[in-house]
Amino acid sequence: MTNNARDAILQRLQNSQPSFDNSDKPVSVETPEWPIKERIEQFKSILESVRAEVHLAHPDHWTDTLKSLAKKKQLNNLLYAKKGPLGKMIEDSWDNTEQPVLVNNEGPISEWKESLFFHIDAAVTSSRAAIAETGSLVLWPTEHEPRSWSLVPPVHFVVLDANKLYNTFAEVVEHEQWQQDMPTNALLISGPSKSADIEQTLAYGVHGPTDLIVIVLT
């Protein structure tokens, strides 16, 4: 059935390809560019406008920031990737007796889905890049930092290297040549989960995290 449908649809489209001009001449769209300081400012203010938190931290001491934020949120546990890019620093700075308790699980999510869905308070992941214009984090989830980590727990901490802050989405795609090799899943995350479906009133934490907390390493 499908094959017949395929051929029939393609045939119809080919038979009636339009005769309008398809100008390939590029339209010059101006894209903003900010020096790094303003870029961070822009990124921060856009994210804060959608109720995300943005904290600047020193690359050597950001775990202190993470720790104090996690304490303030009164989290019981924090999911982190032992083998991920942040794993070592987090472990080194954490005292086993401290709250929140560090949790790590390298197994397939299906094996510990219940705990992820109903018992994990927060997760911390790295971020591949970010976009100043729209206040977006770029995540390409990996085997160490799976995609549901940025989605299922109520609180999501993201650690971003300020050097990876681009001006625009177009710039990231172009600079990193995404079209050459797209990952399983590429994500732009630009705030906590939200909805305005009831009377246009904003509510946060609909299905994804209620809190998105970004730590920018400068």
């Binding site: 856009i46 959608v50 214009e133 729209t134 206040g135 977006s136 797209m182 990952p183 399983t184 899943n185 590429a186 994500l187 732009l188 995350i189 630009s190 705030g191 906590p192 989960s193 939200k194 994804g208």
Partner: peptide
């Protein structure tokens, strides 16, 4: 400016 999630699925 942008939606909270832009989800690109390739495989």
């Amino acid at each position: 400016t942008i939606t909270t999630y832009f989800n690109m699925i390739t495989s």
